[in-house]
Nucleic acid binder design. Sequence first.
DNA 1: TAATTGTTATACCTAGAATATAACAACCAT
DNA 2: ATGGTTGTTATATTCTAGGTATAACAATTA
Lengths: 122, 122
Amino acid sequence: MYIEIDFNSDEAIYVQLRNQIFMAIATSQIKEGESLPSVRALADTIGVNMHTVNKAYSTLRQDGFLKVDRRRGAVVAVDIDKLTSMEKMKAYLRPLIARGICKGLTQEEIKELVDDLYDELS
Amino acid sequence: MYIEIDFNSDEAIYVQLRNQIFMAIATSQIKEGESLPSVRALADTIGVNMHTVNKAYSTLRQDGFLKVDRRRGAVVAVDIDKLTSMEKMKAYLRPLIARGICKGLTQEEIKELVDDLYDELS
DNA sequence: TAATTGTTATACCTAGAATATAACAACCAT
DNA sequence: ATGGTTGTTATATTCTAGGTATAACAATTA
């Protein structure tokens, strides 16, 4: 699993970490049932504190992407709840779509971006 | 212009403000060339500090949504730069799409959300 | 002249992000 | 059984961002 953190970004490290794990799961670089590196190991390889990784893992667990097994560590286990997922996605999407409309992006242009990204990420 | 701030949200006030102005412009509640309330007036009506509104206006100006005229205040003036807008949209969208793919959302389901939101916001 | 415009400056407080140690129970390999 | 590793929790510290509070400025407007 390739993780790259931009320490000059205004985005929190644990958020960058979370997003990259999203992408790793989406692209099947990590598959359902497989283990993630231990919090200490990952913290060491990317050069951040253990607690920063732990926070990323904790939020991923809380949002239904990981389950924690004492003997196997953090294991990919995605809770599928389509209704909730659609609602969340809609809420996240709303300000982005509004921004795009202001900037003159058409409905088709936005959906082309979705197509591009969906291909890129699956 | 109806602005509603959730003071219990984890989202920063100036970000909520920014997003609602996006939506107001997208839905033509405020139109190109029209003035927004003064920073002091808006701060007063929604019950926050002047500088919080000023920060929202400043970022909107920096991102090409407003132009500031000394005599007319903050005026809606959207800079259309489709290439940059598409790139930004793609960057914002990427982690969201990844999240959706993990949760089992199909390409069509996501595009339906885009359709719904585009209709709602234009 | 008096009031309002965005803007800037300064100071303060609080919460969140990140780091640093340290310890815990549970597990596993040797 | 010992030693090392797992996630987790606790405590403390530093730094930054968000928000508030006054105050002042030049430019504009009534």
